[in-house]
């Protein structure tokens, strides 16, 4: 597992785009400086949203062995921040700025057994792992959960390729996955690789920790795109700086503060590193923690937020208001 996180930017041409499941488009790119894409890798790319260049991360679903053709799949979220809308609008022949494959989610070879867990469009990070493990005849199961079969990308291919190594849970067929039941049955030497909505991943992480399983055997990736609540518009204030701005549904608090002219510190922009931490001074509403930086205890305290992904939400008609202090 030789991970590379050196960003080499290049141009990539869209050579195919098609709807492969409800709301999910498969987009095939031909980068001009191809390199091999290992399972677990993603691309970062620049999309234009409201005239602004924005950076987004997408898992590499599959790629030719030489990396000359790279496929992504993008779910157009109802609460899109704009990235998925722009990606769905791509046409064959469009040229994007993309990185060479980046690796934050390497698949380790040689584990006694594996469980791959995909929720919804999280399958995009898992497909290549399933195929790699099948190729080396590793002991593994893919658990794939979704709202409906029509919304589950790559379902037919994976069922055909993996046979009894795949287990399907479909909400509208009444076979919704039980996280407790799943984690209870995991053998102690299992390595788990999961990608999906943060509710699913938080639930698995809690059940995992409750069982006392080794935390390093639970591998996951998140791009901070999902939360416990649908995004709402809210107001953020920084009393010390006299700043007050509205965070629209499609923007992050970090982006809104940057646009308001606040000099913000940040790094990963996906809720992992904790550098964009803000201190909560006052809160009308609740915090939708979408990061993986804080522990449950810290999230419960609502004293700090990772403003790159986390949001304020309101249970009433009045929008939430959060007052913060920044570093």
């Amino acid at each position: 597992m030789v991970a590379s996180n050196i960003e080499v930017w290049q141009h990539a041409t869209v050579v195919e785009t098609s709807e492969i499941a409800t709301g999910i488009r498969r987009i095939v790119l031909e980068p001009n400086r191809p390199v091999k894409a290992d399972p677990g890798t993603h691309l970062d790319l620049m999309v234009t949203i409201d005239g602004r260049p924005e950076r987004r991360s997408y898992s590499i679903v599959d790629a030719s062995p030489d990396g000359r053709r790279v496929a992504l799949s993008v779910f157009r979220t109802p609460a899109s921040r704009g990235g998925s809308i722009a990606m769905h609008a791509l046409q064959v022949g469009d040229v994007l700025e993309v990185t060479q494959p980046l690796q934050n989610f390497p698949l380790r070879h040689g584990a006694p057994r594996y469980l791959l867990l995909a929720g919804g469009v999280g399958i995009t990070a898992i497909v290549a792992m399933a195929r790699a493990l099948a190729r080396v005849k590793a002991e593994f199961t893919l658990v794939y959960a979704g709202r409906s079969r029509a919304a589950m990308a790559y379902l037919a291919e994976l069922e055909a390729e993996l046979g009894d190594r795949i287990r399907i849970h479909v909400d509208d067929e009444g076979t919704t996955m039980s996280v407790a039941g799943l984690v209870e049955q995991i053998a102690e030497d299992t390595e788990v690789y999961m990608c999906g909505p943060i509710r699913l991943m938080d639930a698995v992480r809690r059940a995992w920790n409750d069982r006392g399983l080794p935390p390093q055997q639970l591998r996951y990736e998140t791009f901070g795109a999902s939360g416990w609540f649908d995004p709402q518009e809210f107001t953020v204030r920084i009393p010390r700086l006299g700043v007050e701005t509205v965070v629209p549904k499609g923007r992050s608090m970090l982006e809104a503060l940057e646009e308001a002219g606040v000099d913000m510190m940040f790094d990963c922009r996906r809720g992992e590193c904790g550098l964009c931490e803000v201190r909560v001074l006052d809160l009308a509403g609740d915090v939708d923690h979408r990061d993986v930086f804080y522990s449950d205890r810290q999230k419960e305290a609502r004293a700090k937020m990772c403003c790159c992904v986390s949001r304020a939400v309101s249970a009433t008609d009045a929008p939430a208001v959060v007052s913060i202090e920044v570093s």
Binding site: M1, V2, A3, N104, F105, P106, R108, H109, G110, P214, P215, Q216, R219, Y220, E221, T222, C268, E272, C273, G274, V292, F293, Y294, S295, R297, Q298
Partner: peptide
């Protein structure tokens, strides 16, 4: 890190960054 290069302890915070790994070689 454990022998597979996975972070098992990040002393200055309550969680472990999921990206925190170093390559481990067979």
């Amino acid at each position: 890190y454990d022998s597979l290069g996975r972070c098992v302890s990040m002393p200055a915070q309550e969680t472990i960054n999921p990206s925190a790994t170093v390559p481990s070689f067979p």
